[in-house]
């Protein structure tokens, strides 16, 4: 019971989030770097990890946001606890060049995808005998969850 609780706590600390935000289109590249690095220091100081930074470039917005028609999209993949996300969102809200942001938790979806993939692989390995395939898949899935 205590072990399960500890595991649960550990799981809580290791959530993965995707943080996508849009900055104004006239923001120079070095200032974007500065913004990302300040966010990174905030992440690392509170025990998280920045896994990926992806610049998706300038894109036309589907609707006007703060009178802008274009925006530069930046995507961060962050690992950490919920409090960290709260802090990051606060920072994005107060930073003037950021015009919109969205945070999505992706670890549970990723877990589901891995499970589906595993099942599919197991099925592919035994295509001739369809009957034992589900039991085999279940047998393989069980240790992963335990």
């Amino acid at each position: 019971m205590t072990r399960a609780a500890a595991k649960n706590l550990e799981k809580q600390m290791n959530r993965t989030y995707e943080l996508m935000f849009i900055v104004r289109p006239d923001m120079p590249e070095e200032e974007q770097d500065k913004l990302v690095s300040t966010l990174e220091t905030a992440i690392t100081s509170s025990g998280g990890a920045l896994q990926k930074v992806e610049r998706m470039g300038k894109r036309r917005l589907a609707y006007t946001v703060r009178k802008f028609h274009d925006g530069i999209y930046i995507l961060l993949v962050v690992e950490g606890a919920g409090g960290l996300i709260h802090e990051l969102e606060r920072r994005l809200r107060v930073s003037e060049p950021v015009i919109k942001f969205l945070t999505v938790r992706i670890d549970e979806e990723q877990k589901r995808l891995d499970k589906v993939k595993k099942l599919r692989d197991a099925k592919r390995r035994a295509p001739a005998t369809p009957a034992p395939a589900p039991s085999e898949a279940a047998g393989e899935a069980a240790p992963a969850t335990a």
């Binding site: 589907a62 609707y63 919109k100 942001f101």
Partner: peptide
Amino acid sequence: KQARNIALLPFAGRAS
């Protein structure tokens, strides 16, 4: 709905 929120898709009307 998530894509709409981050202005990748429009809420109403076509994307310009």
